[in-house]
Design a protein around this nucleic acid. Structure first.
Lengths: 274, 274
DNA sequence: CGAATGACGATCAAAAACGATCAAAGTAAG
DNA sequence: CTTACTTTGATCGTTTTTGATCGTCATTCG
């Protein structure tokens, strides 16, 4: 349809700029020019604004990040025609069967867990989540008790994270936690954001059972930060496109593997497996 | 011509436009022109109307979505001709003037603070809120750092409250807190929910300045739980329908009173708090 | 200590976006 | 069929944003 990544407004650019600065800690102006594809003049003007707001501090030759650990961006919630969508939905259908009525369930952010949340709407549950989109799904429902994990919103994904979130998780206990990942390899499970990973570790500690939902494209890909190791995960829900190589590997571990059928025949969901 | 497939009325077009805006959070005018296949002039006119009705907010280079999220049971805008709604928006306009760029602002739940939030979308701010609808407003914005107060969701209103929320507020400090009320009488300010009131007291303690937004119909009405007393409130923003009796009463107190003009005339005096 | 390289800030011109105005096309009423 | 009214598209002048140039200042190296 239309271009996906480039949003041509100064605010969006400054947010992306701040993302780069935060991620690297210190960046030179030519680096910013290359990564944002605008002139250095524009960079300087933006930095002036960012310094004004205290989110960055300029020095000779570059910028330091000084802001708090937040920035907000949330764009389109994925392309409807994306092929991965079917996988996510298939996974969500299987994962929903793991939830019993009146369970207390923790839902991480991410498109797959969002699909799972859609499947859970209307059922009598206690839901704990750090995801704003997920919270919206349940906020209109009378059948669920909804608890939101507070904290700073990570714009791209619309989830809270950071110390506030972690602190709140320490006093919470849930029966099942559904976590999403950005990558899986033989060492464990990865996500892209350091603070988010720390929050997800706290989620794992708060849960009796940790269930990972991940489509098959995530396998063999790592990311910035390792979130969990294999022995920390009780159950893994993947679509059936998972290679036999990985299936064999997982068979040798304690982790329980559930394969979601991609055949999009409406299977009459007989829910409730424990 | 063929009125069956392509509905070319302005209402239908605006509805589709709003769909696109809601889905993407932020859209540029050329994008809207391409996806709706009308001229940019028409887009601008429609956006003007949409902004007038409060469903979107324009900035340089595009539009933000500010309408209600479909899944959230919103405070009913109820009667289109409801006079109270004009009052709320007039109050919101005045209250928005109290906010400076790069302020840290706490926004309570409630219809009036929601209107205020709409006015603040697109400005560079740090926002702390316990309201899910308010959080949704800002989650698409690049210019704000958004922090959500965790806790249990109060179904009717979509705000978090309870001990989690209060605990989180203890470690937060904001410059200005905007609180809404259900009633005001000579003893102080009231709300209907006990736990909510306790949370709002915590909000007041976390803020350098406490600003109450309340339309004139709230005056003389009490409610279940007293939230604050008069001397705890720095500033009060009310519409100009407030009776002279109350104006005189407030004059004798320390509380600063701001009257919001109800007709849409451009008022010249700009009041700002540093 | 002084020249050279690079970074910074200011200024100016081009480009994009905006608002207002006007004419054309379409619609409803008489 | 004509007239009044609304809606749409296009144009123009103005404002905002962006990119490039140039003089000045700082840091480095000889």
């Amino acid at each position: 349809m239309n271009s996906q990544t480039s949003v041509n407004t100064s605010m969006a650019r400054r947010a992306r700029m701040l993302d780069v600065i935060r991620q690297q800690g210190f960046v030179s102006i030519p680096e910013l020019r290359d990564s944002l594809e605008v002139s250095e003049s524009t960079i300087r003007r933006d930095l002036e604004s960012l310094e004004e707001s205290g989110e960055a501090r300029r020095t000779h030759g570059g910028v330091f990040y000084t802001g708090s650990v937040t920035t907000v961006r949330q764009f389109q919630r994925g392309n409807p025609n994306d092929g991965a969508w079917d996988k996510k939905r298939a996974i969500a259908l299987e994962a929903a069967k793991l939830v019993n009525d009146h369970d207390t369930v923790l839902l991480d952010g991410g498109s797959t867990t969002y699909e799972l949340a859609k499947q859970l709407v209307g059922r009598p549950l206690q839901i704990v989540t750090n995801s704003l989109p997920v919270a919206n799904l349940f906020s209109a429902s009378d059948s669920v008790d909804l608890v939101i994990l507070g904290g700073a919103i990570h714009n791209r994904t619309g989830v809270t994270h950071g110390p506030f979130t972690d602190q709140m998780l320490e006093t919470i206990n849930v029966q099942k936690a559904f976590l999403s990942v950005a990558g899986v390899n033989e060492k464990g499970f990865y996500n892209s954001n350091l603070l988010l990973v720390e929050t997800e570790r706290c989620m794992m500690r708060s849960a009796d059972r940790t269930i990972i939902v991940a489509d098959s494209t995530k396998f063999g890909r790592s990311s910035l930060a390792r979130m969990l190791e294999w022995n920390q995960v009780d159950t893994l829900v993947v679509d059936e496109d998972l290679s036999t190589l990985w299936r064999d590997r997982i068979d040798e571990l304690d982790t329980n593997l559930i394969l979601a059928p991609l055949n999009n025949s409406q299977d009459t969901h007989s829910n409730s497996i424990s």
